[in-house]
Amino acid sequence: MTMYAALLRGINVSGHKRVPMAELRTLLTELGHGDVRTHLQSGNAVFSSASDDENALAAELEQAIEKQFGFPVPCLVRDSAYLAAVAAACPFPSAELEGKQLHITYYGQPVDADRFAGIDPAAFLPEEFRLGDRALYLYAPDGLGRSKLAEVLSRPALTKGITATSRNWNTVVKLLEMTAPTGTAHDGART
């Protein structure tokens, strides 16, 4: 069995697209998954599955959510090894930063630098971003809510045709802990 994180995009924000976590846990269990747990109200769930097809798991969850709640919710499903590799590849000093200063946007497919070519990195300093494996790392020293770079990076033109959802570093570390194989610990620092 492989441990996965399901990352739901845009739920429980200002009362819109309400998906209670207890109902999400029940839904994942009814889909045949084990070890189901959720984290926060913002669309983070972990589960175990014998499947090795992240895309099929995400599609199945999207269909079940739409059937259960009556609205579409884009979902990404990533295994524990991927989550650990993306965290370990963080180009910013994660151990030295507050969780609100560092974010990862997970993408449904690989993205290349050409997509972001129109952004002048110097115009946003000290904020910075770097691309990774189906991920974008954002350093926003004043937090996401005040980040001008985050605003630009989330424009529809840059995310067109791609499922994307962001998590702050605290949530990244918590998902690592929740999906880690038994006996494995993650401290959230780069290795």
Rank of each mutant, 00 (worst) to 15 (best):
M3Q: 13
A5E: 08
L8A: 05
L8P: 06
R9L: 04
R9E: 09
G10H: 08
G10A: 12
I11Y: 00
N12Q: 02
N12R: 00
S14C: 06
G15P: 04
H16W: 03
K17D: 03
R18H: 12
R18C: 09
V19Y: 02
V19C: 11
A22F: 09
A22L: 10
E23R: 09
T26E: 15
L27P: 00
T29S: 14
E30S: 11
E30G: 09
G32A: 08
H33S: 09
D35Q: 11
R37N: 10
T38N: 11
L40Y: 12
S42G: 13
G43N: 10
G43T: 10
F47Q: 03
S48A: 15
S49P: 10
S51A: 01
D52S: 15
A56H: 09
A59G: 13
L61H: 07
L61D: 04
E62F: 05
Q63S: 15
Q63R: 15
Q63P: 01
I65C: 00
I65D: 00
I65A: 01
E66D: 10
F69E: 02
G70T: 00
F71R: 04
P72D: 08
P72Y: 06
P72V: 05
V73A: 05
C75T: 14
V77P: 07
V77Q: 06
V77T: 05
R78F: 04
D79I: 08
Y82L: 03
A84R: 15
A85C: 04
V86Y: 01
V86T: 08
P91I: 02
L97A: 10
L97P: 06
G99T: 01
L102T: 13
L102K: 06
L102I: 11
I104D: 03
I104W: 01
I104M: 02
V111H: 05
D112W: 07
R115N: 04
R115P: 00
F116D: 02
A117Q: 13
A117C: 04
G118P: 05
D120C: 12
P121N: 11
P121V: 09
E127L: 04
E127P: 03
E128S: 12
R130D: 04
L131T: 11
D133K: 14
D133W: 05
R134K: 15
L138H: 08
P141V: 12
G145K: 05
E151D: 13
E151P: 01
V152P: 01
L153R: 03
L153A: 04
S154T: 12
R155H: 13
R155I: 03
T159L: 12
K160L: 00
T163H: 07
T163A: 15
T163W: 06
A164T: 08
T165M: 12
T165N: 13
V173G: 10
K174C: 02
K174G: 01
L175I: 07
L175G: 06
L176P: 02
M178K: 12
T179I: 08
T179K: 09
A180T: 07
A180Y: 07
T184W: 06
T184A: 06
A185S: 12
H186Y: 11
D187I: 11
D187E: 14
G188M: 04
R190P: 02
R190C: 08
